[in-house]
């Protein structure tokens, strides 16, 4: 069903709601297109005309800096007209239903919605509501999915490691509440990562994670031993308030990524983090800013990957750079 809703009759991307169920060829196509778009940002005139005359609305029901900004930039570099609407300024606070908000924005002849919402599944609901000419891109829904983040992480891994086969990847931290982790598991499994580990305390590694293709590790040292890539997840303060963890201090003691621990991984290990990072809570500054960290490259890659997904959804998988 995910696949049916997301692709057209020719198997081309129509919405981008989740990585789950998409074939490896389509994910590779996203990465290949993103590769071509990376050049755009490095030129004097950082624009291609693929989405000229198209209207893109970034509809964010949850705060975001990185994701919203990079979607904004991606759309602008594709020459689209972009509008940013966030919860603080929207009428959702005045009691308007999600469906009504959407109908109103659609009535303004919007071509694409980038949606971030606190409820898992909200972009699916939206994709079912909009007309056939409108695309929906998931900018993160609840704990469910954050497909562009997963793709930009995959893009970063491919650039650094050259591919996915034979890699060991550890995702560390609050898997239970992380849409990034879920999407990343689907993406990396589909792209060929065979050893995928979900590392964290039992309160933060959800039941049934094996069914998604990740092996749970409850010990940090075992979890990152021999890994090629370590993806650290952000730990939120509210996890301490909801009895999932005793303190940030103890979390760092058990699961914080330190230079000492990093030695357990492969010598050329790559350290990633979707941001925003909590220095001294999930990751030591020396590691975050160290030579093996690609955290800032991830942000840069986010623009190219989002350009690729937007262009593909709009049916313009044309060559970048003309």
């Amino acid at each position: 069903m995910s696949l049916a809703l997301q692709t057209d009759s020719k198997g081309r991307l129509r919405h981008f709601l989740t990585v789950e169920g998409l074939p490896r060829s389509l994910l590779t196509e996203i990465l290949d297109n993103a590769e071509r778009f990376t050049g755009v940002g490095e030129r004097a005139v950082k624009k291609v005309p693929l989405l000229r005359g198209k209207t893109v609305i970034n509809l964010f029901f949850e705060p975001s800096t990185r994701t919203r900004t990079t979607f904004d930039l991606a759309a602008k570099r594709l020459s689209a007209d972009v509008m940013n609407i966030s919860i603080e300024t929207s009428s959702a606070k005045k009691g308007e239903s999600l469906a009504d908000t959407l109908r109103n924005l659609e009535a303004m002849h919007t071509d694409m919605f980038v949606v971030r919402h606190q409820s898992s599944g909200a972009p699916f609901y939206i994709a079912q509501q909009v007309g056939p000419e409108v695309s929906v891109i998931n900018g993160g829904d609840g704990r469910h999915s954050h497909p562009t983040q997963a793709m930009l992480d995959a893009f970063t891994i491919r650039r650094v490691k050259g591919g996915f086969d034979g890699l060991s990847v550890a995702i560390v931290g609050d898997i239970a509440h992380s849409r990034v982790a879920r999407s990343e598991i689907h993406a990396l499994r589909t792209l060929g990562v065979s050893d995928l580990r979900a590392v964290g305390p039992r309160t933060l590694v959800p039941t049934g994670i094996e069914a998604m293709g990740a092996t749970p590790y409850y010990d940090m040292e075992e979890g990152i031993r021999g890994c090629d890539v370590i993806v650290m997840l952000r730990l939120q303060q509210e996890r301490m308030d909801s009895a999932l963890l005793p303190s940030a201090h103890e979390y760092f003691q058990l699961y914080g990524l330190t230079q000492q621990r990093l030695k357990l991984a492969k010598r050329d290990v790559t350290v990633m983090h979707p941001g925003p990072i909590n220095r001294g809570i999930e990751i030591e500054s020396a590691v975050a800013d160290g030579s093996q960290s690609v955290i800032l490259q991830q942000v840069t890659h986010g623009i190219a990957v989002r350009m690729a997904v937007m262009a593909m959804c709009m049916g313009n998988q044309a060559e970048a750079g003309e």
Partner: peptide, 11 residues
Amino acid sequence: HESPLSTRLGL
């Protein structure tokens, strides 16, 4: 229901 599907859907 708490199950592999709830984990998958993030509900």
